Amino acid sequence: MQQNEDYVLKVLQDVGLVSRKQVDAARKRLDGQNNVVDVLIKDGVVSDADVSRSLAAQAHMDWIDLSAMVIPPAVIKQISAADARRFKVIPVAFGETGLVVAVSDPLDIDTIDSLGFLLHRELELVCSSPDKIHEALIKYYGTADEASDIIQEKIGEDVDLGLEIGDAAAITETDEADAPIIRMVSMLIIEAHRAGASDIHLEPLDKKFRVRFRVDGVLQEMQAP
């Protein structure tokens, strides 16, 4: 762990995001709960995205912003909720040679190897920041309570989706059937808020389901989740 942290700090210094003086100051403030990188992030010297972008570049890995994407349900189903949470990864797309999966730490070779072994398939890795992956885990795999939490965090208001799944150990068949609906609703609300939409229009058509957001008084068609 210390070796990885030293490498991360060297990368951040090499690309000019932090100085030696800032690293030394952060070391003096360690409290046993955080590492130096955590302290630098907490102090606002660098962000999660800064760190993950820098590591991705060093690993010759593409960096993506998960919050700007709508991932199809068929892709999400490639990794179970339990495994996605366990490994802190998000399936992103079907690639040319395998499943495209977003990770937050390109240095965590054990997790990457374990996931590939578990899925019995080739993986094409991309990188995203830990906070974006955490948000995506709730967005695509979360319960109603978790979805409400993230929407409240984004919008700054109390939100009640009017649906509950309950504890994972006590999920009923009806609850499992509702889960995709809960995820879709939470996803639409988050995306609408991000787009600055005043309202959401859901329009079932003959051969597709159309989603439109009203932004600045104009209805704009969005990609259906």
Rank of each mutant, 00 (worst) to 15 (best):
G98Y: 05
I133K: 00
I76M: 06
R53N: 08
I133R: 02
A177D: 14
S19V: 08
S114M: 13
Y7R: 13
M61A: 09
R183N: 03
G156W: 06
P72Y: 11
Q152K: 14
P106C: 02
P73A: 10
V101C: 03
L9W: 00
R214G: 03
E96V: 12
Q78T: 10
S52M: 14
E146M: 02
P91S: 01
D83T: 10
D110P: 12
S186C: 08
V100T: 06
G156F: 04
D83P: 01
I151M: 05
A57W: 08
L30W: 02
T143C: 03
S52N: 08
Q223A: 13
V89H: 02
F117A: 15
G166I: 12
P130M: 09
R183L: 05
I109P: 13
Q223V: 09
P204C: 04
E135I: 10
E135F: 13
K77G: 09
S148F: 07
A74T: 10
Q2H: 14
G217I: 01
L205E: 13
F209V: 01
D50W: 09
P72N: 13
I41P: 00
A197S: 01
Q78H: 09
D6S: 11
L137F: 05
L17G: 01
D83Y: 04
S47V: 08
L219T: 02
K42N: 14
D160F: 04
A195R: 11
H201M: 01
K208M: 11
P72L: 09
V39T: 11
I200Q: 02
V18P: 01
A59Y: 07
E203V: 12
A25N: 10
V39G: 03
G196M: 04
Q220F: 01
S186I: 05
M184T: 11
E191T: 08
E124L: 04
G44Q: 09
A74V: 09
R194Q: 06
N4M: 14
A136G: 06
L163M: 13
L219F: 04
I181D: 00
F209L: 12
I64K: 11
V8P: 01
I151W: 03
C127F: 05
L137V: 09
E173I: 15
I76Y: 02
P91N: 06
S128K: 03
M61I: 10
D160I: 05
D105W: 08
P225F: 07
V159K: 02
L99A: 06
D206S: 14
K28G: 12
I138Y: 07
G156M: 08
L119K: 02
V23L: 04
Q58Y: 13
I165P: 04
A136S: 15
Q33G: 10
V89R: 05
H60V: 15
I76T: 08
P106S: 04
H193T: 06
I189L: 10
V218G: 03
I151K: 02
E173D: 15
W63Y: 15
H120A: 00
N34Y: 10
S198V: 00
A82L: 12
M187C: 10
T143P: 01
S148R: 13
A84V: 10
